[in-house]
Every structure is written in structure tokens, then in C-alpha cells.
């Protein structure tokens, strides 16, 4: 499966989707008052950045960077494996960060009975 000839259109699609996801997520993280909504926004930013990094590494007509028996003799052009390894790491770390942040939200709710950051006034637990 290879992407067709409309490379200009696909450029706009992939980069545009990634940048739009980053901006929507940043907007949610800056404007919303609920802590869970802020974390949802940050996870959307994460998705956008991952899409941006993988689409930078794409090569037109390239195959996946795996020397399976079907392609090893043909010596095909391959996409860049370095951003893929980077994004693999980023996704796993992103999940760990989200889980710890949500645990802190649960802990805050136990003490304040709210997740709205306007109502959590004192800095003490």
C-alpha cells in the first residue's frame, strides 16, 4: 500500500491534522477549569505531536523498515526508522505520565471534593 500522487493534498492533510490537534489540545489545557479536561487536552497534544513526528519520517514509495523475506532481496527504499523509534518511546512515557497525573487528581478530589481548579484555593493538602 503506497500513498498516491496527490502529495500536496496529503501534506496539507497530515501536517494540518497534526497542527490542528496540537492547537485544540493547547486551547483545552489553557481555558478549561476542570482538571480532567486539562489532562484530556494534554493527551490530544500528545497525539498531535506523535503524528507530526511520524509524518516527517515518511518517504514517498517507501516500505516499512522491516527486512521481511519478501523484500530483503529487492532492496527497496524504506521510510526513516529513527522517528518511529522515538515515537514508540514517547507513547509509552505519555501513558505513564497520564496515569500519575490522574492518580494525583483522585488524591486531590479526596481532600477537596472537587476537581475545579478555581475552587481549590489553598495550597495545603
Amino acid at each position: 500500500m503506497s500513498l498516491g500522487s496527490n502529495l500536496d493534498l496529503l501534506t496539507v492533510t497530515f501536517y494540518g491534522t497534526a497542527i490542528a490537534l496540537i492547537l485544540i489540545g493547547l486551547y483545552a489545557a489553557l481555558v478549561k477549569r476542570s482538571l480532567i479536561k486539562i489532562l484530556i487536552g494534554l493527551s490530544i497534544v500528545d497525539s498531535g505531536i506523535n503524528l507530526l513526528l511520524v509524518s516527517i519520517g515518511y518517504l514517498k514509495g517507501g516500505t516499512a523498515p522491516i527486512f521481511s523475506p519478501a523484500v530483503i532481496d529487492k532492496n527497496p527504499a524504506m521510510v526513516d526508522p529513527v522517528p518511529q523509534a522515538l515515537v514508540l518511546t514517547a507513547i509509552v512515557i505519555g501513558f505513564a505520565v497520564t496515569a500519575v497525573a490522574l492518580a494525583l487528581v483522585i488524591r486531590l478530589y479526596r481532600h477537596h471534593k472537587t476537581v475545579n481548579i478555581d475552587e481549590i484555593k489553598n495550597l495545603k493538602w
Binding site: L10, I22, L59, K60, A77
Partner: peptide
């Protein structure tokens, strides 16, 4: 703020061609 971020992101990534060798 988001408009400034969007301007710089679009400016940078319009120079990196998608799928180019």
C-alpha cells in the same frame, strides 16, 4: 497565543516537504 504558535508551526513545516527524499 495560539495564533502565534500556529504561525510558527505552519511556517516551519511548510518548508519540510512531505514524502520527499
Amino acid at each position: 497565543l495560539l495564533a502565534v504558535v500556529a504561525y510558527y508551526l505552519v511556517d516551519v513545516f511548510s518548508q519540510i516537504k512531505f514524502g520527499e527524499n
